[in-house]
Nucleic acid binder design. Structure first.
Lengths: 217, 217
DNA sequence: AATTTATTGTGAAGATAATAACAATATTTT
DNA sequence: AAAATATTGTTATTATCTTCACAATAAATT
């Protein structure tokens, strides 16, 4: 982990990719400058929060003017390491896994699913999009060879922990977990959960029990 | 919105479906009682946080004993309205939409995708799983007829806002948004985002810039 | 029935995050 | 070049969330 700047709050860090994406949009639509108020409207984050977020990286804007789109974009590209391609492994090529293979992560982020793994013989040796699918038995060998340290986990829940253990042993440091299982990992590995059923159910709960007054992340 | 109990913190509300799922697991494995410490190990949430979360609903446990699994389960089933089926519309039957159609939300939550919409003629009139796919032109008509107020949005980003406007006009109150677009909605509509590219990119960012010491939600 | 043990529920403290508000100041207009 | 305007960066404030720590007390053991 490079610790070039002061450590950024997690809430801020999670918004950075979002800012980056909208700055790219602005840039390609030819916009030269942008204020925190405009950006706020686009990304639905309070303008004071945006200014605060940016301020962790120093004074990026100019008073009375706003932010130079090009400058900001260049700055965030470096900060988010967009010049360096991050290769990711996809574990479990079922319905969801296949959908993710077709999802173009590369377009907005310099992240690419470089390899997939499954146990179903019909899939082994094929290519989905341009991603080769290998047998799960080769997991350790191939991701080690490819130097992959980030994995997306889309296997059936009962296999999630076992495969996680193998990923950890193979030096994977980050797991995007789409299974409902809550994974046990060492402190050196980071897991982000995307729990589809929980997301849907908590949305329903909010609708029934809360007055709705704004969206939230 | 029913406001039967005191308003629960949002962070707590988001964890309720998770607790519910694990309680179901415990129950079906025959467990009679559980402590906050055990539950903590399973769901990876601090035990004090679990006790605090539960305490918003009153004193559900017994000192020196823990919680009765069956009692908790019954309580949460009511609280999460699990006895009442929530029908959901899926807008956009592409790769991701199709994967979600095959995802069994019903298993753990009383939530079901009841209808899908797309513009591709080949899909109209077919059934995926047991879910009928209709033309997008019929959106308002059908979801109004079916009394649906929750939608999952998996259309290409450029169409997201237009379709959202139509959903809102057709009385949809909750949207689970898988598109990268940040939607503009009235204060009476709630949007939850699942932004796959942002999730992946922020995971990569955390790996590079932070010492990893625990997982987080 | 007395003692030990386990575990809750919660007050207090701490940590993190969001927002308001405004002085400072760069840009734009006159 | 002076005045008016726009907008940042940040200090202060408030809100939300997490965790510690422990008295209270129910259950289990002796």
């Amino acid at each position: 982990m490079s610790n070039d700047t002061v450590k950024i709050p997690q809430a801020t860090a999670k918004r950075l990719p979002l800012y980056y994406r909208f700055l790219k949009n602005l840039h390609s639509s030819g916009k030269q400058r942008v204020s925190s108020a405009e950006l706020s409207e686009a990304v639905k984050v309070d303008s004071a929060t945006i200014r605060r977020d940016f301020s962790y990286f120093g004074a990026l804007g100019k008073k009375g003017y706003g932010y130079n789109v090009n400058y900001l974009l260049t700055f965030f590209r470096k900060t988010l390491d967009q010049d360096e391609l991050t290769k990711v492994a996809l574990i479990g090529v079922g319905n969801l896994g296949t959908a993710l293979l077709h999802y173009n992560f590369l377009k907005n982020n310099n992240t690419k699913i470089a390899v997939g793994f499954d146990v179903e013989e019909a899939k082994i040796g094929t290519t989905i999009g341009d991603v080769p699918i290998h047998h799960m038995d080769e997991l350790e060998k191939i991701i080690t060879e490819m130097g992959i340290t980030v994995a997306i986990l889309t296997v059936p829940a009962p296999f999630a922990q076992t495969i996680t253990d193998r990923l950890v042993a193979a030096n994977v440091k980050g797991i995007l977990n789409f299974t409902p299982a809550r994974l046990t990992v060492p402190a050196t590995t980071r897991v982000h959960h995307i729990d589809l059923a929980v997301e849907l159910q908590s949305l329903v709960y909010f609708l029934k029990h809360y007055g709705v007054d704004e969206e939230e992340e």
